Amino acid sequence: MTSQPKAVPLVAPGHTRPVTHLSFSPLQDDGTYLLVSSCKDGNPMLREWTGDWIGTFLGHKGAVWSTKLSPDTSRAVSGSADFTAKVWDTYSGEALCSFPHNHIVRTVAISPALSHIVTGGQEKIVRIFNLGRPDADPDLLCDTGTTAHNGTVKSVVWIGDHTPASAGEDGVLKWWDIRTRKQVASLSFPGPITSMEYSAPTSRLVVTSGKSVAFIPALPTAAPTHSLTLSYQPSSASLHPIRQDRFVTGSMNDEWVRIHSIDGEERDVLKGHHGPVHCVEFSPDGEIYASGSGTIRLWQTTPGKTYGLWQGTASGS
């Protein structure tokens, strides 16, 4: 009987403190993509699709909680505990803009047209900065008063050029229109939202809250939300972008990376980290997924397959 190849991760070294966030770029015309990582060491890192280091963005003076790439990978935006969000040129590594805040910036995203960034954090405010007018005051997205959420804003994403979405510790997911600066829809969860991923290929948001993982239409529609309750509290979750038949999770309560089928059945438990797994994400081609703890580990969706730095030499289990 032939045994299944064992999952052997690649370790992407370089960070010196816990990795707080991971984000892949979309698939590029040449079939490659990039990976950007955030870390409490304050130095976001850019990597090739193979995991090879490209460069480090130097300039933050505190932990970096979120970094994301533009669709064409020419820009990166980061949010930090130094009360700033920065926009970077990924070719030169230079900071192009730095936007001050009044508290820790926990989450950032750049619009598909590279025209705006959206930020959120411990001020409970969602801000929109116009990159064409970087010295102008930001627009504030709010319903009433001056805050967007009744708790820390944990994640923001762009869904098209005019629709950012924000998720907070108040357990509310909100969609906004930057043209009117108003909320257009919302969805409440019974507990704080811990992570949100925008899966562009599947047109879904993947949201974790308590022990639940919810797969939500990216734009507010009448389409149903698929929600699962797990036996543990996931720190983050990511949906396979092609097959849509599985998702990966991390957890703050153990050191494992788990693979579940879309109905919630646990398919695999992967061990290799030596601390809580803060973040996970599938690559845009679905061939690998990355997990962040004290290190970054890259795992193959199909162990043993020749891909990137894996040469098909994984040993059997």
Score class of each variant (00 low, 15 high):
P190N: 11
L35K: 14
S74I: 04
T295H: 06
T32P: 13
F282R: 03
A167W: 02
R297K: 09
S195E: 06
T144K: 05
L298K: 12
L114H: 11
P13C: 06
G120E: 08
T67E: 10
H149Y: 13
H15M: 10
G286L: 05
R181V: 08
T73L: 08
C97W: 10
S186V: 01
T144H: 12
E123H: 12
S238G: 02
H162A: 14
W175E: 05
R133M: 13
T20E: 00
D285R: 15
H260A: 13
F129N: 13
R297D: 04
D285K: 12
I104L: 02
T180I: 01
L22T: 13
D143I: 07
M252G: 00
V118H: 07
S80H: 10
T194E: 12
S70V: 13
T208M: 03
R133K: 15
H273I: 00
V77K: 04
V157A: 09
G294Q: 08
L219P: 02
I288P: 02
P284T: 07
I54Q: 09
D41L: 14
V248S: 05
G272S: 03
V105D: 09
F57A: 07
L114Q: 15
D170V: 03
D161Y: 13
S291E: 00
R258G: 05
V248A: 09
Y91S: 14
G210I: 02
V108R: 10
G51S: 01
G168S: 10
G264F: 14
S3E: 07
E169C: 13
F24G: 13
S74V: 01
I288S: 05
G312F: 05
V8G: 01
D82I: 03
A222S: 09
I125G: 14
G151K: 02
D82P: 11
L27A: 10
T73H: 03
L270E: 02
K174C: 10
R204D: 00
L69I: 07
K68E: 05
C279M: 01
K211P: 06
G55P: 04
W310M: 11
K211Y: 09
I216D: 00
H260K: 07
K86R: 14
W49V: 03
H15W: 12
S115F: 13
S166N: 09
I178C: 04
T50K: 09
V105N: 09
A76R: 06
A214T: 06
A214Y: 02
A113N: 15
T67K: 14
A113W: 15
S166W: 10
V8T: 07
I128F: 11
Y232H: 10
L140E: 08
S115N: 12
H260Y: 12
I117G: 05
G272H: 05
S236L: 01
A109F: 08
P224T: 15
K61G: 05
S203V: 00
Y33E: 02
S37N: 01
V108Y: 13
S115Y: 14
G121I: 02
P134D: 10
G62M: 00
P71S: 09
T90S: 11
L22V: 15
A223E: 12
T301N: 15
